[in-house]
Amino acid sequence: MIRINCPVCGLRDETEFTYGGDASVTRPPIDDTQLSSWMDFVFMRDNPRGEHREFWHHVQGCRQWLVLERNTANHAIGSCTLAAGRGT
């Protein structure tokens, strides 16, 4: 069980959230027409064994998208921040 310290709602069980994958990828600007940048964003992942920054959506809480630091090797949890705060 992952417990996520939502900056809005506090410490909650993973069952309140949905997972949104790697948060290190950057969505290209909407007017970027290069195939490679969209391929990279949509399909390619670092998939590290260790520290991972990832999106979680507090769907059954504040409905904020969060960025959680989590270790994929041992499930240790780091900081959790609002995704909206990280800039574009």
Binding site: M1, I2, D13, E14, T15, T18, Y19, G21, D22, N47, R49, H52, E54, R70, T72, A73, N74, H75
Partner: peptide
């Protein structure tokens, strides 16, 4: 379980 993991152990949900 739904999230990236190499830990070979899952959770209660």
């Amino acid at each position: 379980d739904g999230y990236n993991s190499y830990a070979q152990r899952g959770g209660l949900p």
